[in-house]
């Protein structure tokens, strides 16, 4: 398979950056997208050129590191897959593929396709935790009765890997799907109830401070999310935020 790749190259955060064309040959349909990038980088290194920098780690769809905007979509044309799970058989021989970094003011480009997603870490730090006693006398979580439906919903929300595809694909660069998943996974469980109101206000406020856009309910995030996180979480977060605000929580 021969491909023409149009890849965003940017030397550093301050560099202006530009799209650069690369031709790659010998790509197999069974290769993952990242393996195709590895082939390209090997060719670049052999020629003495700078390889394309991109984030990757587990290469099995659970770490949330890989983050490429491929042919106009976050993680490319596949559904419920990360870039590392996208296979080259999804593309045709001779195809032109656009590869860009996540675009958002809150996700500044570090180099090439690598962006700084620490804004997500700061949202978590603002309240995405439960304060439990870890002194050794911690109550067994299984001793707390939790309705099956709530446990399932919390688990679904907890499958968010924080890759940022929701932000990247949203026309407004909104982080509501991520933030709402991280709020829901805790607020649906009894352990998360104690700090639920402070949590939702603090995490939403941090999300706004980071410079993410407003949600306009296009639903693009849900479609592109590799873990299929539902818009139900955003509605839950809206309810919780409005309720906490009405009760004057600070």
């Amino acid at each position: 398979m021969k491909l023409l790749l149009k890849i965003w190259r940017q030397n550093g955060p301050q560099d202006k950056g530009k799209m650069v064309d690369y031709n790659v040959d010998g790509i197999e349909g069974d290769m993952s997208f990242l393996e195709m990038m590895d082939v390209l980088n090997s060719q670049l290194i052999e020629k003495g050129d700078e390889p394309v920098i991109f984030d990757h780690d587990c290469r099995e769809g659970i770490c949330g590191s890989c983050s490429m905007f491929i042919n106009g979509e976050a993680h490319g044309p596949g559904r419920n897959v990360t870039t590392c799970q996208l296979h080259m058989r999804s593309f045709k021989d001779g195809e032109t593929i656009f590869i860009e970094p996540w675009r958002a003011e809150a996700f500044p480009v570090i180099k090439d396709l690598m962006v700084d997603r620490s804004a997500f870490d700061r949202i978590i730090q603002a309240g995405g935790y439960v304060s439990v006693n870890t002194s050794g006398n911690t109550q067994d979580a299984n001793s707390l009765p939790i309705p099956k439906e709530d446990a399932d919903l919390a688990f679904d929300a907890a499958t968010c890997i924080g890759c940022g595809a929701c932000v990247a694909t949203c026309k407004n660069a909104s982080a509501m799907l991520f933030t709402s998943a991280k709020i829901s996974q805790l607020s649906l469980l009894p352990q998360g109830q104690v700090e639920a109101k402070e949590r939702v206000i603090n995490m939403v406020n941090q999300m706004d401070l980071e410079g993410f856009g407003n949600c306009t309910n296009t639903g693009a995030c849900e479609v592109e999310c590799p873990k299929g996180i539902s818009l139900d979480n955003i509605a839950r977060m809206n309810r919780e935020y409005l309720s906490a605000t009405a009760k004057g929580k600070k």
Binding site: W8, E100, G213
Partner: peptide
């Protein structure tokens, strides 16, 4: 919130 736009953005896909 996104001053640098995508070169290729397929909004109709989702």
């Amino acid at each position: 919130s996104r001053k640098v736009k995508y070169a290729n953005y397929k909004g109709s896909a989702n």
